[in-house]
């Protein structure tokens, strides 16, 4: 079993890992169960799936995590909606870390690209790491 990833383990500038995942129908269904099936195929759905892919990428790569992490900020550049069946490649990188007011802050970049390397999104998660 892999050890829990601690704040000390993060190195600014260092890649953390990659994840490749298909935009499956189950993801669209889950989105529609929340935001409505009359919104199926909408632009908001495409944008929502992009955010979901970002979170799936982060959670899939940066694991196992200590309990109690908090997300303080989200920056997100939305370039294009992922297409059903498209293979999304996610890369996670540590951008920076610092101690502020006795809290362990991290900025992690999560980039998602699709077919032919086209940019889907670029996210920066600003996290307060628990340990």
């Amino acid at each position: 079993m892999k050890p829990v990833i601690l704040w000390d383990d993060f190195q600014p500038g260092a890649p953390l890992g990659e994840l490749t995942e298909v935009f499956k129908p189950t993801l669209a269904k889950a989105w529609r169960d929340i935001f409505g099936h009359d919104n199926a195929g909408s632009r908001a759905e495409g944008a929502g799936i992009a955010v979901a892919m970002m979170m799936r990428g982060y959670l899939g790569v940066v694991t196992p995590r200590p309990p109690g992490n908090v997300q303080a900020r989200q920056r997100f550049t939305l370039d294009a909606p992922p297409q059903p069946g498209e293979v999304i490649h996610t890369v996670v990188t540590c951008l920076s870390k610092e101690i502020k007011r006795e809290r362990r802050y991290l900025d992690l970049e999560v980039r998602g690209t699709g077919t032919g390397g086209r940019s889907i999104y670029r996210g920066i998660l600003s996290l307060i790491w628990a340990a």
């Binding site: 929340i34 632009r43 979901a52 997300q71 989200q74 920056r75 997100f76 550049t77 939305l78 294009a80």
Partner: peptide, 30 residues
């Protein structure tokens, strides 16, 4: 937290023409 961001997408995309995909930069604090 990001469920709220998805709700913001609903607000944004409903506010603009259906024909227009929106490339955008978001910067929010929780």
């Amino acid at each position: 937290g990001t469920m709220s961001i998805c709700l913001l997408w609903e607000s944004l995309f409903r506010s603009f023409s259906e024909a227009e995909w929106l490339r955008l930069d978001l910067d929010v604090r929780f």
